[in-house]
Amino acid sequence: MSRLHHLAESHATSRIGWLRAAVMGANDGIVSTASLIVGVAASNASRAAVLVAGIAGLFAGAMSMAAGEYVSVSSQADTEKADRAREAVEQVEQPEAELEELAQIYETRGVARDTAVEVARQMMAHDAIGAHARDELGISEATMARPLQAALASALTFTAGAAAPLVMVALVPSALLMPAVAVSSLLCLGALGALGARAGGAPLGPSVVRVSFWGLLAMAVTAGIGRAFGAMIG
């Protein structure tokens, strides 16, 4: 008596729905809040003003990230629904053409003609719309747009990322505020890059360098602008 053993495999693709939004949210939370704090601090503002600006940036950024992700991913979801609806109509109006289209897709992937036709026939008998969505349009359960999931992931991780530079504002002396925020933020960005690469199964080095470079550049630019405007106003 034979026994079937089902191996539970975990692929990074299954995380794509929330991973992209989470990494973007955390990265933006760290970079935008740290840059805002550094820019305001460079203008010789008081610690209270810097803290208020940072807190306002946290809440505004979290809401903006949530709204932006929800709207953009909803547009993707609407497109996917429209494509699936179009496929449903085509299944009714031209079933043979749809069968041939699916068979040709399998042929281009290396399946013999007779086998491709039979596989296409069986797939369409089982779930015609699902087969075309997956094999023709590239829409699968793992990569399907989930607006609410993306919005929540980006808002929560933005808040977590923004909290790191804000903690430094509350804890360190005013004289060390800018370097402390910059260094701690770069460390957080490096850790974020490593975590994102690990979760996505990608090399750590390029991811860490990428997020750290852009974070450093953003803080340098806003520090320069803050210093310039501070000198003009002062």
Rank of each mutant, 00 (worst) to 15 (best):
S75G: 11
G130M: 08
A60I: 04
G57K: 04
G130P: 07
F213W: 13
S207K: 08
T79M: 14
M123F: 13
V89Q: 06
T33C: 10
T108G: 03
Q104V: 11
V31E: 02
R227T: 11
G234V: 00
A60Q: 02
S174A: 13
N27F: 00
A197E: 12
L171D: 02
A155F: 09
I139S: 01
A202E: 15
M168L: 13
S185A: 13
A182I: 08
A191Q: 06
A42K: 03
T222V: 13
A202L: 15
S32Q: 08
V221D: 06
A170M: 14
L177D: 05
V89G: 00
S64N: 11
A128K: 01
A21V: 10
M232Q: 12
R198C: 11
G200P: 08
L36F: 05
A120R: 07
G68W: 01
A145S: 10
L171H: 09
V50M: 04
L4E: 15
A26W: 01
E101F: 12
A26K: 10
R113I: 09
T79S: 10
D135C: 04
S140C: 10
G25K: 05
A77N: 07
L156G: 14
I30S: 06
V167D: 01
R109P: 01
S64Q: 07
A66Q: 06
L51E: 02
L186T: 06
S154Y: 09
G25S: 00
T222H: 11
D114V: 12
I30E: 02
A88V: 13
V50R: 02
L58W: 08
T108I: 06
A153N: 02
A180V: 02
V117K: 08
G215H: 08
G17Y: 04
L152R: 11
M232N: 07
A116L: 06
S184P: 00
A8E: 13
A48W: 15
A142F: 05
V208A: 07
G205I: 12
E118G: 03
Q91F: 09
E87V: 15
I129A: 14
M1K: 11
G29Y: 08
A12E: 06
V71W: 14
A56S: 12
T159D: 03
D135Q: 03
R20F: 11
P173M: 09
W214Y: 15
V183K: 10
V73N: 06
A155N: 11
A199N: 05
G234W: 00
V52Q: 11
Q104F: 14
V169K: 09
A60W: 04
S212G: 05
L195P: 04
L204M: 13
A66H: 11
V119P: 00
A218Y: 05
